[in-house]
Design a binder for these strands. Structure first.
Lengths: 252, 252
DNA sequence: TATCTTAGCGTAAATAATGCACTAAATATT
DNA sequence: AATATTTAGTGCATTATTTACGCTAAGATA
């Protein structure tokens, strides 16, 4: 139970991060490879990036460090979404792996899930590749190490809720984006089809989405205009409104 | 760092519970008294009910136990809403109190916040009084022990969001309630005024709120009719709907 | 019978959501 | 130069929801 470095590492608490990105088509998540030895044979699978916390750091800081390590300075403040504390959440085998990997000796690890959104551009892809991580399309993930599949599932449904609650989706798009990109992103996150005309109408009516006047270049079709999200204007709009609509959300 | 009972208690993790109730007028929360000795003098203040977790229990179970202890079997499954993990979240003085109170010896406790909703009736009030706890009106709370005020604040804003998202508010009302009670409850939780006519119209249109035919008795005014929330009908309605409204919520 | 108190109803106007089909602007192909 | 291909972008009519607002109804009490 007592590791010899327990003055530093808190051996019962870890942080796992679900880092979402959008490649223009579908929603992706950052995974790292893990090698376990089962019956003497080496087996590879994937896990979410994570780490144990130190005694003198908060979970938010710990999560921020993961984000920093994995994505450089492309940090969007990660958000805590749930703790996974089932004493049986990892098998005995996997616990051995954890203890070995982190140099600890515990028989239980409670983990805290964070998710964050990043702009998945060339530069980030190159960077994450250097960290030994890769971006996997969410629909394609059938299995992850430990209970990470469940952590991912929970992160996604939290994201689906949050994205409808506040304008965080923009963090996954370039500063200047087309309405079509935004629509595709919403479709990908929520897993629903969205009518383009109605979506445009809605978005363009929002006081905090502004046309830049710039257009796409070198595309083999009518170039789309770029828009930006105006933080200030959003904050202003946010204060102004209040209605009974809360009850409508019950029918989600 | 090592307590002699660390095979049982996980000395770095606790659970604190925010238990909300509604007395017909305002939103209340369950508090327990705490006695600390500062400079040799005994000082009393209030805190949220909480406990350390045991090594072999999940946080959900631990929270459920608090609920059970404090409210008997009047349990509505408590919901985890955030971890408070700032290494400085409790002062050195307060840490001493925690160590003494729980019989542990640690220099850091991370706590997990849960909130839950109960029906605040005579029977519950009597029960909680036996547990040495009391119900305090939220607006009246200016200070709580440790960082419990912040935990309470966070719980409340989570509740405000959740109550708009799913029909959990009914857990704070008797099985049979009047529309006016429901309205007052929403007002109290959200801290807003609600137009009675529009509220009624909205509520009565919902397919999962049914009139019972029964009315209030012994009231010195026109008796209101009692309604109930129909879980099944809600589940059915929930599946049926999907729209673009998600973006409107941005203007909250 | 009047008064007090809270329940409960209705309607018009404004705003938002939905469903649906065509035109516009660029590149690529012939 | 004409045509094809591809995605951007627009309009309108219908329906649903929200908002604002003032009066009547039913019981208890004096």
């Amino acid at each position: 139970m007592h590791s010899n470095i327990d003055k530093k590492i808190n051996s019962s608490l870890s942080v796992d991060s679900v880092i979402f990105g959008f490649d223009g088509k579908s929603l992706k998540v950052l995974l790292v490879e893990r090698t376990t030895s089962i019956n003497g044979r080496e087996v590879k699978d994937y896990k979410l990036p994570g780490r144990m916390i130190f005694e003198n750091e908060s979970l938010d800081i710990s999560a921020a460090k993961i984000f920093h390590t994995m994505t450089g300075d492309r940090i969007i403040s990660p958000k805590q979404f749930r703790i996974f504390s089932d004493p049986e959440r990892v098998s005995k085998e996997e616990l051995k792996w954890i203890n070995k990997f982190h140099g600890i000796n515990t028989d239980r690890v409670v983990t805290v899930g964070y998710y964050g959104l990043v702009k998945l551009n060339m530069s980030l892809i190159a960077y994450t590749r250097e960290q030994g991580a890769h971006w996997e399309q969410i629909d394609n993930i059938t299995h992850l190490a430990m209970d990470h599949k469940e952590i991912l599932r929970t992160a996604l449904s939290t994201l689906q809720r949050d994205v409808a609650q506040s304008p965080i989706a923009f963090h996954m798009l370039p500063k200047k984006f087309t309405i079509r990109q935004l629509q595709t992103l919403f479709s990908a996150i929520l897993g629903i089809e969205i009518d383009n005309r109605n979506f445009r109408k809605k978005i363009l009516n929002l006081p905090f989405i502004k046309a830049t006047g710039e257009k796409e270049k070198n595309v083999k079709h009518k170039p789309a205009e770029y828009y930006t999200f105006k933080e200030r204007a959003f904050k202003r709009a946010e204060k102004a409104k209040q209605n009974l609509r809360f009850i409508n959300n019950w029918s989600y």
